[in-house]
């Protein structure tokens, strides 16, 4: 049974121009102990999916799904207090905009204290402070922060985005969650330290059996660190499957275009396709095309593409396209 099982998740909001579907029937499934990459251009709705899983979208969003299950528990049916027991402890999330994810009016140290798992603390109360300090120090060292004293005394605006991100990662792993949702965890971190974070994730994954949903648009990270990927475009899932397979042979024109935007990809490519980068840009939510949302930009688009393609399966590999790259069209 998958740890995280999402079927036809839609996220909508009411705008002056009517109801807009920012995320349209997205499917995602994450097995225990797996690292899943969720990729897609900016604005494709990755963060919305993550926030819907955490249940922290504001009231103006409507979330509906055929299935939104964590470990068999229906996340949409949870009461607020049941949800609280799960969030932070079982499912944890690293947010995309680190400095705004910390309370600007409170020191980092104080906020860190609040997110420590006090129910795991078995020392008498007079040694608690020491225990806390040790825990925090250990967690901060794990994410590569050496001068923890300065960091803990600082207010968020005094730290760089990268440091804030590292602090947030340290805070999220304090509870040893079973599912870690990392929304672009390393985009603001300097190149050298990115690998350290990924190694930490990998270690958590292997030693503690943490499953990770890695949201990113850096395909190199996806290639190096994930076992499966799901590709999103404009609020729809376009392709999902095992990372290696997809990198070897993408089925969907959009995935192909993404891969080709990677440096050195041409050398890896043993397929004689002649696709170049897609023309145009991502449509705005107010002007979504009907049918396949890639339609206007897709070099393979045909008349049939005004119907939304259904998800198809081929050799453990899902895609939604009427004319996958493996089929020849004339």
């Amino acid at each position: 049974m998958p740890l995280l099982d999402i079927r036809n998740l839609s996220i909508e909001f009411d705008s002056p121009h009517g109801r807009i579907r920012a995320v349209d029937r997205v499917n995602l499934s994450l097995n225990p102990g797996e690292i899943l990459g969720l990729v897609g251009e900016s604005g494709s709705g990755k963060s919305l999916v993550a926030k819907a899983i955490m249940g922290i979208l504001t009231d103006r969003w409507t979330v509906s799904a055929d299935r939104l299950r964590y470990n068999g528990v229906d996340l949409l049916a949870l009461s607020a207090s049941e949800r609280r027991k799960l969030m932070g402890r079982e499912i944890a999330m690293v947010f995309q905009e680190p400095s705004s994810s910390l309370d600007p009016n409170d020191t980092v140290g104080h906020q860190f204290n609040e997110s420590l798992p006090m129910d795991e603390c078995d020392v008498p109360f007079y040694r608690r402070k020491k225990w806390r300090d040790e825990q925090i120090k250990g967690l901060l060292h794990k994410v590569g922060i050496r001068d923890h004293k300065r960091v803990l005394k600082s207010y968020p605006h005094e730290l760089s985005e990268g440091l804030c991100q590292k602090v947030l990662i340290a805070m999220t792993i304090a509870y040893k969650p079973r599912l870690l949702i990392a929304d672009e965890p390393t985009t603001v971190i300097e190149a050298g330290a990115q690998d350290q974070i990924f190694k930490l994730f990998k270690k958590l994954n292997q030693l503690n059996d943490v499953s990770i949903l890695l949201i990113t648009h850096d395909l190199e990270h996806v290639e190096n660190w994930t076992q499966t990927i799901t590709v999103m475009y404009c609020g729809q899932t376009v392709e999902s499957g095992i990372t290696k397979d997809i990198f070897k042979q993408p089925f969907h024109p959009y995935t192909m275009a993404l891969l080709q935007s990677m440096p050195h990809f041409d050398e890896m490519l043993n397929h004689k396709s002649q696709l170049t980068t897609l023309s145009g840009c991502v449509p705005s939510l107010q002007h979504l095309p009907i049918g396949c949302r890639l339609g206007p930009r897709c070099p393979r688009a045909h008349r049939k593409c005004v119907e939304t393609p259904v998800m198809e399966k081929s050799r453990g590999h899902y895609f939604s396209c009427h004319f996958p790259l493996t089929e020849n069209i004339e």
Binding site: K51, M54, I56, M87, R89, F95, S100, E114, Y175
Partner: peptide, 10 residues
């Protein structure tokens, strides 16, 4: 955001 983050930390 920081409120959402605090909520997400349970």
């Amino acid at each position: 955001n920081y409120i959402k983050a605090a909520q997400a930390r349970g």
